[in-house]
């Protein structure tokens, strides 16, 4: 894996990291916090691993394996959050037979914290999605779909704030424009709102009013497009206050998160792990008290 280090405020960072470590060992209490974010996207009802004779992904994927991996990571760091970026449904007969029930039940057993909603999650209609909600012990976070004239009204959240080891993590969600992508008889009166405007407002609220230490966007917009279509990369560049965008839709296999810069030149990470549960994405955030010497620069190792 290629390793790139982005160091802000290089003046002090390299010299003082070592000293900071020493200081925290000697007399200051260890103030460093460690938050692990795990994520999937576009799993598309892939419950079982691909068979050994599969032409593309032999022996890969499988929910039972993902579950043991997640469990292991949570044992190592209890301050872990687990997210999905949508398109949970559609892709194997498990969906056609059980309508998404098994997908939601398994995600609940794996203790997913939240998901956003993908276009294929409407494949059995908005009523088909609603019907499966009782099987989901996790939140549906989507900020730019107005469901007020639909059966989903009140069953999703614009954002949610998670607290892990005193760290406040604000999470919001963005869905793709459904018109032209999904038959309108399926999504009914779901209204799509401008994702950039919603993201700007929601992220500002989370960072500045709610004082979140981290702001994460779960997005089903897609990684990037040649056209003007809004994507995660465009979203990152045209907004502020977002630390991480966890994406989906385009089935983009990134072997490491993309580091880009937002509207005011601050780093934003954009990640996506392809599809079908072939990979689990993992982002580790280390935070420290502003007064600590270690907090003198941001080091991104991807």
């Amino acid at each position: 894996m290629k390793r790139r280090n982005f160091i802000q405020q290089t003046s002090a960072a390299t010299a003082l990291v070592g000293l900071g470590g020493l200081l925290s060992l000697s007399f200051a209490p260890n103030t460093q916090k460690h938050i692990t974010i795990l994520h999937t996207n576009d799993v598309h009802s892939h419950i079982e691993p691909f068979p050994p004779d599969d032409s593309r992904n032999p022996n890969m994927g499988g929910v039972a394996r993902r579950a043991s991996l997640i469990e292991k990571i949570k044992m190592e760091n209890p301050n872990t959050l687990l997210f999905d970026a949508g398109d949970i449904f559609q892709g194997t007969p498990y969906f056609n037979f059980y309508g998404g029930e098994l997908e939601f039940k398994l995600m609940s057993k794996m203790k997913y914290d939240a998901t956003t909603i993908g276009n294929h999650d409407f494949d059995n209609g908005i009523d088909g999605l609603y019907a499966q909600l009782p099987h989901a012990d996790f939140d549906f976070i989507i900020s730019n779909y107005d469901f007020s004239n639909t059966i989903m009204d009140g069953h999703t959240r614009d954002y949610k704030i998670f607290k892990k080891d005193e760290v406040k993590i604000g999470v919001f969600g963005l869905g793709i424009e459904l018109k032209g992508l999904v038959n309108d008889s399926l999504y009914k009166e779901t209204r799509y709102l401008n994702p950039i405007e919603i993201a700007q407002d929601t992220a500002r609220n989370l960072k500045q009013r709610e004082n979140c230490d981290l702001v994460i966007c779960l997005s089903h917009l897609g990684y990037s497009y040649k056209s003007d279509k809004i994507s995660d990369m465009k979203l990152a560049k045209n907004t502020e206050n977002i630390d991480l965008i966890i994406g989906g839709h385009t089935h983009t296999f990134l072997d490491k998160p993309t580091v880009t810069r937002n509207k005011i030149g601050k780093e934003v990470l954009v990640n996506q792990v392809g599809c079908y549960g072939l990979y689990l994405g993992r982002i580790d955030f280390y935070l420290d008290d502003r007064s600590s010497l270690k907090a003198n620069g941001l080091k991104i190792e991807v």
Binding site: M1, Q32, K33, P49, N59, M60, G61, G62, R65, R66, L69, E166, V167, K168, N211, C212, D213, L214, D243, L254, D255, K256, P257, L269, N271, V273, G277, L278, Y279, L280, G281, R282, I283, D284, F285, Y286, L287, D288, D289, R290, S291, K294, A295, N296, G297, L298, K299, I300, E301, V302
Partner: peptide, 18 residues
């Protein structure tokens, strides 16, 4: 007021295999 600052971020992906 939020007094925590991100000092380091690591990103990885883990293959789900046999």
């Amino acid at each position: 007021e939020n007094d925590l600052q991100t000092v380091k971020i690591e990103g990885n992906r883990i293959e789900i295999n046999k």
